[in-house]
């Protein structure tokens, strides 16, 4: 039943914590080159879905396929290496490493210098280190001058909130992913920054050729970027389709606003 055309495919995925069903029977897919938004009220299971896909949690049931291969049971670092990169709902940088180093960590899984190469600085290792640096600068450069120049050598903790979010995305881009998963990228940003970020998400697909799966609360962003929208509530998919279809779905409206009082 798995379709190799899909980049990411979840089938009947379930995850519960004790008696709480964070996800149950969740099935949806993401195709290459798509921007898919995941919406839903707080506690709907959106972040749990992210954590299950990226290996931080193991699902209790179901099947998760990336490029047709089952990724259930793999460690997070192995899944990242397969080509899924993510950001976190609350910013998680390496606060005391410099901005450049943060991005360079992203390249870790694409490189392989070992102890001997590092100790003797063999030519291969030096070339690789140069490549890591270049690639890290490229991903920082995706956000214009905000993370470039003198800022490269500053600790990540010195950045403003919005720039921390951007650096987290740059670090994800530096892992050379095929699929980027952004967990509420505009949370806490002001309207101008939010607009800018909307463009960045579109550019990730158009310029970098990436597929994007994004959890987002800001409906202007969801409307602006999504090819498709998946709505979750109580760990289940309640609607899927274009923005307009989902936005007018009675179940979605109910999930967000509640039902009309009867009588």
């Amino acid at each position: 039943m798995s379709d190799p055309e899909h980049l990411l495919e979840l089938t009947d995925v379930a995850k519960h914590f004790g008696g709480l069903y964070a996800l149950s029977g969740l099935t949806f897919h993401v195709d290459p080159g798509e921007i898919v938004s995941v919406i839903g009220p707080n506690g709907a299971g959106k972040s749990t879905m992210f954590n299950v896909v990226t290996g931080l949690y193991e699902p209790d049931d179901g099947d998760i396929r990336f490029r047709g291969a089952n990724v259930v049971g793999l460690a997070p670092n192995q899944i990242t290496k397969l080509g899924i990169a993510r950001t976190f709902q609350t910013v998680h940088l390496f606060p005391n490493m410099t901005i450049l180093e943060n991005a360079m960590v992203g390249q870790h899984c694409r490189t392989k210098s070992g102890v001997v190469g590092s100790v003797f600085r063999l030519p291969g290792t030096r070339r690789e280190e140069e490549r890591i640096r270049t690639r890290a600068r490229e991903s920082l450069g995706f956000f214009g001058t905000r993370l470039a120049g003198y800022r490269e050598e500053q600790p990540a903790s010195a950045l403003s909130y919005a720039n921390r979010r951007r650096l987290e995305m740059a670090r994800a881009l530096a892992t050379d992913p095929a699929l980027v998963m952004l967990d509420e990228p505009t949370a806490g940003m002001n309207p101008r920054e939010t607009l800018e970020l909307r463009d960045h998400i579109v550019r990730m697909r158009d310029e970098l050729g990436l597929t994007v799966l994004v959890i987002e609360h800001d409906m202007r962003v969801v409307k602006g970027v999504s090819d498709r929208v998946v709505a979750l509530d109580y760990g289940r998919k309640i609607a899927e389709g274009t923005y307009d279809e989902v936005a007018n779905d009675p179940q979605v409206i109910e999930a967000y606003l509640g039902t009309k009082a009867v009588g």
Binding site: L56, N77, H92, E101, V105, H108, C109, R171, A172
Partner: peptide, 16 residues
């Protein structure tokens, strides 16, 4: 370094 600062995130960024 990354591992010392945040083990889980280091793992999620591809560090075994």
């Amino acid at each position: 370094n990354a591992m010392r600062e945040d083990e889980q995130v280091a793992d999620a960024m591809g560090i075994s």
